[in-house]
Design a protein around this nucleic acid. Structure first.
Length: 327
DNA sequence: AAAGGCCCTAAGTCCTCACT
DNA sequence: AGTGAGGACTTAGGGCCTTT
């Protein structure tokens, strides 16, 4: 049988509220009694019953993390950071990889206090999600760019990040750059930078995937085997970067000797490559700490009820960019 | 047999009361 | 008056007993 505070109370000859106070350091218990109770609890291997604690607190001290497209190392690192940040403030994180309405339904049933939802720009809630949202009483934070009335929001300046990546390459003499990625605000940042910095523009230098998360491999191969080549790549994410590097290896082409490369997604693995990759992207630590600050009401957000924060991107300059080869 | 109602469980906290 | 102990209450659901 599991030991409860009532077992300890019986053993110590006191009431169970006294045990509760003694074990939680609350006032109203003499030091002698407290010492005795702590010793008995230790001897009986007492472990608090979380369900009962939640019942009494009317809080679960848990944050639900909704992340339906949990792929890649960025998710892994951000998830870990969020978990650590939450733990440092006494909060548990429960992850759901289900579709958002189903994830929110599960979190409603688990009585999580608050929800962080990784939601890309342009996401629109459907009826099922709105219904679950109405049932949910806690704070909700949309993270990644999406927005919804009555929720906190953290956006990421992806466009500005990619713009800076292009500028970085241009400052080192590159004029012909290829963007490999999805049709998103990153692409907007890329084309805007080409225009404003008066760099070469050619439609073949935009290798866009029609399937989210999947490298346009044939288009990449076509470009690498063609005569008209860029001198640098700006790549949408780390998954695409790894696949591009594979294609380059097959052709015995090297970074940064043959091409320079800037990758969106600043994850630790980028630094540990044979040639450490120059990256641009939001700081994962900053994203995590800002999210937990907001969701635990520790974020100074001024007069508005709902926080709306835009996280900028930072460049990590490593070894994958050098001036283009002449000729 | 089915339906309804009461009791119990878990830990924490408010409030009351006893004792020094 | 101050300190500390303990009853009652919180929620949701299962078990058990009584009533129809």
């Amino acid at each position: 049988m599991k030991v409860t505070i009532k077992d300890i109370a019986r053993e110590a000859g006191v009431s169970h509220p006294t045990v509760s106070k003694a074990l939680n350091g609350a006032p109203g218990v003499s030091e002698d009694v407290r010492r005795t109770i702590v010793a008995i609890a230790k001897r009986m291997n007492y472990v608090p019953n979380l369900a009962a604690k939640r019942l009494a607190d009317r809080r679960t001290n848990s944050i639900g993390l909704i992340w339906p497209k949990a792929e890649g190392l960025f998710f892994y690192h951000l998830g870990m950071k969020i978990q650590k940040e939450a733990a440092s403030r006494g909060q548990d994180v429960i992850l759901s990889l289900a579709e958002p309405p189903e994830a929110l339904r599960i979190f409603n049933e688990h009585f999580v206090d608050d929800v962080i939802f990784w939601c890309p720009p342009g996401w629109q809630p459907d009826i099922a999600f709105i219904k679950q949202r109405e049932r949910f009483n806690g704070n909700m934070l949309l993270m990644g760019g999406g927005a919804m009335e009555g929720t906190h929001r953290i956006g990421i300046d992806r466009k500005g990040g990619i713009y800076e990546a292009v500028r970085h390459l241009a400052e080192r003499g590159h004029r012909k750059m290829t963007f490999i990625g999805e049709r998103s605000d990153k692409l907007t940042g890329f084309t805007q930078a080409l225009l404003e910095l008066k760099l070469d523009y050619h439609a073949n230098y935009l290798l866009l995937t029609e399937t989210p998360g999947k490298l346009p491999a044939e288009a990449v191969a076509g470009l690498l085997d063609s005569g008209d080549q860029p001198t640098a790549f700006v790549v949408d994410n780390q998954t695409f970067a790894f696949e591009l590097l594979e294609q380059l290896r097959e052709r015995k082409l090297r970074i940064p000797h043959h091409y320079s490369l800037v990758v969106y997604d600043d994850i630790p693995e980028m630094e540990r490559m044979d040639v450490p990759l120059t990256t641009v992207g939001p700081s994962i630590g900053k994203l995590a700490s800002t999210a937990i600050d907001i969701i635990t009401n520790q974020y100074a957000r001024g007069p508005g009820k709902w926080a709306n924060v835009e996280i900028g991107c930072e460049m990590q300059i490593r070894k994958s960019v050098q001036p283009p080869r002449s000729g």
